[in-house]
């Protein structure tokens, strides 16, 4: 089963490598976000007295930095402010985890297209005639989505690092971040496959994906902390799987605030919150893996 899925996945990866324009665009777009948006917000927050401007911009009571610091430390805003000044977290530091999350989502969410194309051009039948377990076809395609999400996420992570965003937790944090990326890639891959199995033409898939990605993207907390959103948007945010990935990445890559005391930035401080994210993402991914499997079983005899 797994072996056959790998063959299917290998084919998809070969396609991906040959679509140069798609590779370039899938990497350039998040880089533009990162550089254009990340840097301009950075200037506002650090160049002009930082936090106040950012507060004005976001219109919330608390700053971007306080968002995770207060939650992690459970500290009062005043205490957090002191630590924030000491740590000097830039908007770029806040933002890059969000861009990675969004990149991972966009990398996976169109993967159901390949099922639609294969159905239209008969390749799907060829796979079905082969003496392989039926599910290995879906598994292979979902694997491809996952690998692709991971590759693109890592590229953006590397690029963020190059332009000055900081990873404060070291190797363990990065490894953990990869696990979270993998989990959500798998979930969005399975979600897209479920759509691909059900839909007959690619326009319908494009329509649905475009309709849902924008709200997911904006409500995810990639641009601004969820805490600063209006209440109704927070409700949406907490129902959005991307929110948990962005949050988890931020915690994994920036860690807790205790380095102020001279210790390395710790993941242990944020462990409960990471656990919450892990559970939320597992539920999402598990649900769509099951839905996808059932739909696939139902569609092929």
């Amino acid at each position: 089963m797994l072996k056959e899925a790998c063959y299917v996945c290998e084919r998809e990866l070969k396609h991906f490598i040959r679509m140069r324009v798609q590779i370039i665009s899938s990497i350039v777009t998040p880089i533009v976000w990162l550089v254009f948006f990340g840097y301009s917000m950075n200037m506002m927050s650090s160049g002009l007295g930082g936090i106040n401007i950012l507060n004005v911009f976001i219109g919330g009571e608390r700053s971007v930095f306080l968002y995770f610091l207060t939650s992690a430390l459970n500290a009062t805003p005043l205490q957090s402010l002191v630590i924030q000044n000491y740590l000097g977290i830039s908007y770029l530091d806040f933002f890059y985890s969000g861009v990675i999350g969004v990149t991972v989502m966009f990398a996976c969410v169109f993967s159901g297209l390949s099922i639609i194309w294969d159905k239209r051009f008969g390749f799907f039948n060829k796979l079905l005639v082969a003496p392989i377990p039926r599910l290995s076809i879906m598994l292979g395609k979902t694997m491809y989505a996952t690998v692709r999400g991971l590759i693109q996420g890592v590229i953006i992570l590397g690029f963020s690092f190059l332009i000055g965003a900081r990873i404060r937790t070291g190797v363990v944090g990065v490894a953990l971040a990869l696990v979270f990326m993998l989990l959500l890639s798998l979930g969005f891959g399975a979600f897209s496959m479920s759509l691909g199995i059900k839909l007959a033409d690619q326009e319908a898939l494009f329509g649905i994906i475009n309709m849902i990605t924008l709200p997911l993207f904006i409500s995810s907390g990639a641009f601004m902390p969820v805490d600063t959103m209006p209440g109704w948007l927070q409700v949406i945010a907490y129902g959005n799987p991307l929110t948990y990935l962005v949050d988890a990445l931020r915690l994994c890559l920036l860690g807790g605030p205790y380095s102020a005391l001279g210790l390395p930035f710790s993941l242990i401080d944020v462990a409960p919150r990471l656990m919450r994210d892990l559970i939320a993402l597992s539920v999402f991914t598990g649900t769509f893996l099951i839905i996808g499997t059932l739909l696939f079983r139902g569609s092929v005899k």
């Binding site: 084919r11 070969k14 396609h15 679509m19 051009f121 008969g122 390749f123 039948n125 005639v129 003496p131």
Partner: peptide, 18 residues
């Protein structure tokens, strides 16, 4: 059955990008 047969479909379905 699948192990014993070969199938050449009506719509050419070899993979263009391989």
């Amino acid at each position: 059955v699948r192990r014993k047969i070969g199938f050449v479909p009506q719509d050419i379905s070899v993979d263009d990008d391989l």
